[in-house]
């Protein structure tokens, strides 16, 4: 058997988005950690290469080192700026331009939020902002809902990747609509990265088993009792889920089938 066990599943292609390739299919946020040291340790433990950051006003009183780059090296991680907190296309476009001016890359995780309670996306604003930013050369990764038609329109609008939610941002409810996510993945040519809602490692694993290209999470790590341990668990779960997807699961049957031979039983 030696040397014969090299199925395609074990030689997965790297994740490619907007002309770049990434070794990890797990992306993590940098928000809400109890301390910066814990954030850095958790991100390291997750194995993530892409980390998200937000654009905000500098604190002119400088009472603390609020800038995330005081703690995370841009040489070590690929910084993916978001437009979190934006409620209109114009606002999101403004934030994306500011983020690009920081000089790291032209990727943006585009959020245009439509509702304050659920933080669900304003799909009309999202499409409008995507068209503008794609025209300006941005690699747009659009945070969207689990609706296929919106995802198709986002792809047409020029997204580098679409990011449907597993469940609402920060909810930790896990993958609510596996069918919707699978359908989006089947129909789109651009990478599908599930963003938001994953609560624990099993959620991440089940999400990856749908065949999506990656997962972005933040709160599941930051609000775990032990973020570093959860980050490691998530890294393993994303890998396990990916591998299980590539391996191809057995069919579901509503009947038992014995695993041991029926023949050869004693009289």
């Amino acid at each position: 058997m030696t040397g014969t066990l090299a199925p395609a599943a074990l030689t997965d292609a790297p994740l490619a988005i907007g002309g770049r390739t990434f070794r990890s299919r797990l992306m993590v946020g940098t928000g809400k950690y109890r301390t910066n040291a814990e954030m850095v340790a958790a991100i390291e433990a997750s194995g993530a290469e892409i980390v998200t950051v937000a654009v905000r006003r500098v604190d002119l009183d400088r009472t603390k080192e609020a800038g995330v780059l005081h703690h995370l090296s841009p040489d070590q991680y690929f910084l993916l700026a978001n437009t979190a907190g934006c409620y209109t296309a114009d606002e999101a476009i403004r934030y994306a331009r500011l983020a690009r001016e920081a000089g790291f890359n032209d990727f943006v995780k585009l959020e245009v939020i439509g509702d304050r309670d659920t933080l669900l996306p304003d799909t009309e604003g999202l499409l409008a902002a995507t068209r503008t930013l794609a025209r300006e050369g941005f690699q747009v990764l659009a945070y969207t809902n689990d609706d296929l038609v919106t995802a198709l329109r986002l792809e047409d609008a020029g997204c580098a990747a679409v990011m449907p939610l597993a469940s609402p941002i920060g909810s930790g409810l896990g993958l609510l609509n596996p069918f919707g996510i699978r359908t989006i993945k089947h129909r789109l040519g651009v990478p599908v990265i599930v963003d938001a809602g994953v609560g624990t490692a099993s959620d991440a694993c089940v999400t990856m088993e749908q065949g999506v290209d990656g997962i972005l999470m933040n709160t599941a790590l930051a609000e775990a009792r032990e973020p570093v341990a959860m980050a490691r668990a998530m890294g393993l779960a994303v890998e396990a889920g990916r591998l299980a997807y590539l391996a191809g699961r057995m069919p579901r049957r509503e009947i038992a089938v014995p695993s041991s031979p029926a023949a050869g039983m004693l009289e």
């Binding site: 946020g29 940098t30 928000g31 809400k32 950690y33 954030m39 998200t52 950051v53 937000a54 654009v55 905000r56 006003r57 500098v58 002119l60 609020a66 800038g67 995330v68 780059l69 910084l79 700026a81 978001n82 979190a84 500011l98 983020a99 920081a102 941002i169 920060g170 938001a196 972005l216 999470m217 933040n218 709160t219």
Partner: peptide
């Protein structure tokens, strides 16, 4: 004048 930078976010 607006002065912005990157902070922690998801």
């Amino acid at each position: 004048i607006e002065l912005v930078h990157f902070v922690g976010g998801g």
